[in-house]
Design a protein around this nucleic acid. Sequence first.
DNA 1: GGCTACATGTAACTAGTTACATGATTCC
DNA 2: GGAATCATGTAACTAGTTACATGTAGCC
Lengths: 201, 201
Amino acid sequence: MTTDRPTLHFVLLALLTLRAQSGFDLSRTFTEVASHYWSARHSQIYPALARLEADGLVEHRREPSERGPERKVFSLTSGGRDALLGWAAEPADEAPLRDEQTVKALCYGLLPTEVALSQLREVRERHARRLEEYSTLEGQIASASSAAPPLPDPARLGILLTLRRGITFESGYVEWCDAATELLTTSDVAASRPRKATPGA
Amino acid sequence: MTTDRPTLHFVLLALLTLRAQSGFDLSRTFTEVASHYWSARHSQIYPALARLEADGLVEHRREPSERGPERKVFSLTSGGRDALLGWAAEPADEAPLRDEQTVKALCYGLLPTEVALSQLREVRERHARRLEEYSTLEGQIASASSAAPPLPDPARLGILLTLRRGITFESGYVEWCDAATELLTTSDVAASRPRKATPGA
DNA sequence: GGCTACATGTAACTAGTTACATGATTCC
DNA sequence: GGAATCATGTAACTAGTTACATGTAGCC
């Protein structure tokens, strides 16, 4: 059964291993705890769940909401679990990276130094903030069972690994911002570049 | 003139600041030296160049090829340069990250340990290899003018910054692979997980 | 009644990939 | 003649975003 399936489907299956969730829950999961490795809007999630259900990989039960209309809470079927594990066991094929910020950095030699430096400050702060968030979360997960319903061990391990990935990513970004700032501040390579109030150089 | 433009357009303008290039050249540039921060196929590049030219941001001259049909070599117009610098001066808005490998890691608690470990070995090697490539290139660029036509200083600074970004990214990934390997190998969190020859547990 | 949050969906569009199509030049 | 590389384009499709649409329940 190697039906060709978009990656998003497997991402949804993976998130459903953590707990049964509705489309609405999954949408929040993406923005709240998975944004550093995947994201999707509800307009993409609902049709994907429908298709996964049609293919027998997930099933749902209806549940009243605390506040709002009835929820459709999805969980993995055993077929869904098999499909997920089959996918997860294969190494990921290389997906293209796209980082707008790095493209902007490619232009720093053509921008006034102060503009580049202030942009780097802003970017650094953004990533430093996330780094802190992930570190805090990691501490909470790593120290035994702080979650109200303590996570089962496989989920705990998985979440810990994704948090650590977030941490290495963000700390790498912060490191780069610092190195770039230093290069722009001190290096001779930056000497002959446009500056605000120095028409001559 | 704040026409809304896809990011790819600005990426192409940025690459054209390095040197005048044909669509074919740009296509190779993406796979050879820009793949760690952007990529695009020729089927996307040619229409984008046509639109940039129609909008007056680039222009081309026809040039005979060494081997093959006539080339259309594009370069920035002054309007294109202005548009690029205006874009580059604004901090990048946050684009969603998508890393399939991290999603797989989320499932490691459900996979046999050896499968996860061997996957991590493969991934680590991939990133370590790239890290080495970027480091080598950085050394060549950083040590003065090794390029046949020595790069103008702004281009040299820009390229150096993108290489450094590649280096911090890849070394962060390698670091994560090592930490994940250790976690799977030694931690008690991994103790109660499926193993090849233990059907019970 | 009006506002906010919960909840599920569809439609229209944009960005990006894969596949198709064509043709020049060089090397074997 | 055939294969490989250079070179430019279009068509069809997939993935993802933005906008539209609808309705519930609770609070003020």
